[in-house]
Amino acid sequence: MEIREDLRYTESHEWVRVDGDRAYIGITDFAQSELGDIVFIELPELDVELMANEQLGVVESVKAIADIHSPVSGRVIEVNTDLEDSPELINDDPYGAWIAVVEMSELGEIDSLLSAEQYKNFVENQ
């Protein structure tokens, strides 16, 4: 299982890549591996304002359905529509297949997310 050093994580298995005030959000390698083959994704609407931990979308594998939560507060400014036709990209490259970009309204929230090390410990104790 891959955990990237340069990302932040949540206990619900989302990752965040910070670029200025933009947060790229996806699901972790652990999450995609637990879900198995992903066959469907429901993306958020553009311009929607989300609070941290609010539902961002849904991924469905052959056998399971999982909500994706936004780790941060802000406005959805971009969604990865490639995933609508090829949701399996999340299995193939979980850290490349970002799901949405949120323009963060509270940059400080990033500090409360898990570091790579903390997420690794969290997953190992699952």
């Binding site: 198995g36 083959d37 066959v39 594998s61 052959v62 056998k63 299995n91």
Partner: peptide, 9 residues
């Protein structure tokens, strides 16, 4: 066993 290499494969 629910799956080995993945359900679709």
């Amino acid at each position: 066993p629910i799956e080995y290499q993945g359900i679709i494969a």
